[in-house]
Nucleic acid binder design. Structure first.
Length: 256
DNA sequence: ATGGTTGCTTAGCAA
């Protein structure tokens, strides 16, 4: 089973690329983030034509997450479900072939110390609460998405340049470790010691040609799935060419 | 030369 995650940075702007990537890579499941469309504008038909059904939690202009799968999507749930205001579409879960799949778009945080930064740290804590409340670390579960956190300096091509930024600050790294300690394993790190592979390069400053990348898109697995993880990669090729997303897809292979 | 972006929505914000 091949499962992937990709922040597409607008599914409308990226539809042609998404269709050709799915055709080329043929994953069984794709978690997407930053759709930037309401549910009604999600291109269900284009993906249906490739054999994928979709569970979508969209939003106009910002955010928006989805799960595409060839197998049926069961028990779809949107949001964190903690009773607090949920005006941002940042998480969706569904069961696919007996695996609980979660697609999440963690807030960027904008500036360390800002209101958005506080919201980011709180959101990571709320996500951990959701896992603890609704799931068990003994079940097959995969938490995928754009976490907007590079877990440590192996995940940053130029650590000094990014030190204490919203993507690398210790408070965000700590919040991510707390989440992982619920009972998750970093899928890419099973197979790659680092540095890298990076998954995001800023559109600005010629970051991609300069190799100024960060690994902020992750696929976290419970132990029973980590045992089945036979390969992991980032598809850097998808970051090349005309009008790519600023994120490259991350792909895991699960045996049996 | 010391900067060099994209997308959404419509000048400014977010990333």
């Amino acid at each position: 089973m091949k499962i992937a995650t990709w922040n597409v940075n607008s599914i409308r702007a990226r539809l042609d690329r998404a269709v050709s990537w799915l055709t080329r890579m043929n994953p069984d499941v794709l978690c997407m983030q930053e759709l930037k469309v309401p549910d009604a504008d999600f291109p269900f038909d284009a993906f249906r034509a490739l054999g994928y059904s979709a569970a979508v939690h969209g939003q106009r202009t910002y955010n928006g997450v989805a799960i595409l799968a060839k197998a049926p999507l069961e028990d779809v749930r949107i949001g964190l479900g903690d009773g607090l205001p949920e005006d941002q579409a940042r998480v969706i879960a569904a069961t696919v072939a007996g695996i609980r799949v979660i697609s999440a778009y963690i807030p960027n945080g904008q500036v360390v110390g800002s209101d958005k930064w506080t919201y980011k740290l709180e959101w990571l804590s709320r996500l951990k609460t959701m896992l603890a409340r609704d799931y068990s670390p003994t079940m097959p579960l995969i938490l995928c998405g754009d976490f907007n956190v590079a877990p440590d300096d192996r995940d940053v091509a130029n650590p000094q340049a990014w030190a204490d930024s919203v993507l690398c600050h210790e408070a965000g790294r700590h919040a991510l470790r707390e989440l992982i300690q619920w009972g998750l394993v970093d899928g890419v790190r099973i197979h790659h010691a680092g540095p890298g592979p990076y998954s995001w390069w800023d559109y600005r400053q010629l970051a991609f040609p300069k190799g100024d990348g960060l690994r902020i898109d992750h696929m976290f697995l419970t132990a029973i799935l980590a045992m089945r993880c036979t390969a992991a990669s980032v598809d850097r090729e998808e970051r090349k060419g005309k009008l790519p997303s600023d994120h490259a897809p991350v792909v895991l292979e699960l045996g049996e």
